[in-house]
Design a protein around this nucleic acid. Structure first.
Lengths: 343, 343
DNA sequence: GACTTTCATGCAACCGGTTGCATGTCAAGT
DNA sequence: ACTTGACATGCAACCGGTTGCATGAAAGTC
């Protein structure tokens, strides 16, 4: 399968490592001490303006670039932060990662990305590997136990997304508000019995959504049945369609959009018209705009969560203190084409 | 919108920085010189087995963890590699990133992720920022000019994905083979006039696909029209549907699956039945299984590309040499539900 | 005019490892 | 018994910056 071909078999070339210009060379060129060069970059106000200028000019001429590693060694600050997610391929995460990176970038921080494949052991290993090279860490939808998380938090600044652990700064996307709106929406459309297609059992978000739906359904006097989908995936959703239909419901809310899309496909295959005879609502709003009919969903805000988590972490780093903060991002229903009056 | 709430307003706590155990402390504890501790970890064969064991035991007891930064400073190797992509949110990239990270992980390397937002300036800036902290770099679908890429390549080991630049190691996903199969498939179904919905003009993949389609179409004596979509995105695809239809074609091949999905939605809206009256083929095969009907597409192999690029880079790093290699990954057509005989 | 004060700059130690070379020990070779 | 060599370990310089303190010259005070 791999058709590997070398363009020119024998053109191996030794790498000429860019032999980094050092602070000493700049110092010699400018006729000052190394410390002055250092200060010219870090605290120019300590030096005479003309000295600073002379140094900068010399540096410029030599093509000097401060060595990040050396600086990190003496200051202890390397300007990197780690971001760990369970599954990059799940469309929930890319916007979060993107926003996180943008925010980090604004303060000249770089992001180390870790992907745990939904595996707690891998997550633990990654945290360990990152620990030495980052100033702080953001754990997204962590699958680790409370104890492990606390252990890590005692080693380095940590911010959690979608995990509610007292004493550790955290950003939570509260689907509760959106879920209530979704149930109310279905109630107003005349649906009397609905299904919740649940997600991973160890997920904080899943527990939270299930509870919110249960409460809302009972307050609107609707019947609710929970149909479990093992993983938040397209095929899981597709596999539970029969279970959904045999429950005798006229509408369903799925754990996330990916699952909902699977359900949508399964319904199509079985010639069940959406939304004419069955209504469907997703969660996370990552696919809503790209299905046809457009998927009614609960807004996501993962990008805000990413941005917020990073800015929280940066704040912790500059203050060298942690506050027991708990940011909650509320969500709301986005109505599109997969919901209509009960047939 | 952001309902920020602090659980406990005044519970600020100072961070107790884990005050890292150093090599000297271990040396004292084990009654040896610092250098021996260092060697116990890096070249145990230089020491007596019992000495190594004694040192390791002492290290274990003190909870010593080698300081990555310090090691990087003296050795010049920090065990990080940078990976730069134009758009994490495009489903083409997550599998690539995932595979790259897995491969890097096997050799204990960490991945720095950079997202350029399809912006060459941002890309240039990121490369610069990464340069000091990574041993090598993988540029995926770079939007930079040849000159900039060469300039960077002279500074540090570089591997390209989907960019064909002589003298720089590169991994190319050759959609040519898949594209030919796609055109042939359409020809056999009786289509006489087709449209290519093109992608970013500075993208190597786009040029390559366009050329391949052109060649294949003429060899099957089919008419071809190129309709440009500015960006590879859902909305771009949706926006060009009118242009596609007014071209009078009965089938289209889109630059990528995301664009194709936009086209699919646009066709649905205009009540054009797919595949009954119009056939559509995507590229990258990232969404094929999750649309309904399933999108016929050209296989992707982005994960293999990611894995290969990293292993190539690691090889370069350990050899300290570059070979002018050019790996080509062939693709093929995956037929699903969006193609049928011309109406 | 002698005596502080201010402030720009230099000196040297330090961050935490790595590594070439010197030293000391012990066993084998003659 | 004396040399030789092998080999385990220690010494100290080095990677490239940062930073507390010392120094010395210019400016301010009485």
């Amino acid at each position: 399968m791999v058709s590997g071909s070398r363009a020119s078999e024998f053109q191996d070339t030794m790498i000429k490592r860019a032999k980094g210009v050092t602070i000493s060379q700049v110092a010699d060129a400018a006729g000052v001490a190394r410390s002055s060069v250092s200060r010219a970059f870090t605290r120019p106000d300590m030096l005479l303006p003309e000295t600073v200028e002379r140094i900068l000019k010399a540096a410029e001429a030599l093509g000097y670039v401060p060595n990040h590693t050396a600086r990190a060694l003496s200051t202890g600050r390397h300007g990197n932060i780690g971001l760990i997610v369970p599954d990059i391929a799940n469309p929930f995460f890319p916007p979060l990662i993107q926003a996180a990176q943008l925010e980090a970038d604004r303060s000249d921080f770089c992001i180390f990305l870790g992907n745990t494949e939904e595996n707690p052991k891998q997550e633990d290993k990654l945290v360990g590997r990152f620990a030495g090279q980052v100033e702080g860490l953001v754990l997204t939808s962590s699958r680790l136990s409370d104890e492990r998380i606390r252990a890590h938090a005692s080693q380095l600044p940590l911010v959690l997304i979608n995990r509610d652990l007292e004493g550790i700064p955290r950003v939570l996307i509260d689907s509760g508000s959106g879920v209530r709106q979704a149930v109310e929406h279905l109630a107003q459309l005349g649906h009397r019995k609905i299904v919740y297609v649940s997600g991973p059992s160890n997920s904080w978000s899943n527990k939270q959504r299930r509870a919110a739906i249960r409460t809302a359904a009972s307050s609107f006097r609707m019947e609710l049945e929970v149909v479990p989908a093992v993983l938040p995936s397209y095929s899981s959703g597709r596999n539970v369609v029969d279970a959904i239909l045999s429950a005798g419901a006229t509408a369903a809310i799925a754990f996330d959009d990916v699952t909902a899309q699977g359900v949508l496909a399964g319904l199509s295959e079985r010639k069940v018209a959406v939304p004419a005879t069955f209504s469907l609502i997703g969660c996370d709003d990552v696919l809503g705009a790209v299905t046809y009919p457009g998927l009614t969903s609960i807004s996501n805000r993962s990008n805000e969560a990413g941005r917020l988590a990073i800015s929280l972490l940066l704040e912790m780093l500059s203050n060298r203190s942690i506050r027991d903060v708990r940011y909650v991002l509320e969500t709301h229903l986005v109505v599109r084409g997969t919901t209509a009056a009960a047939g």
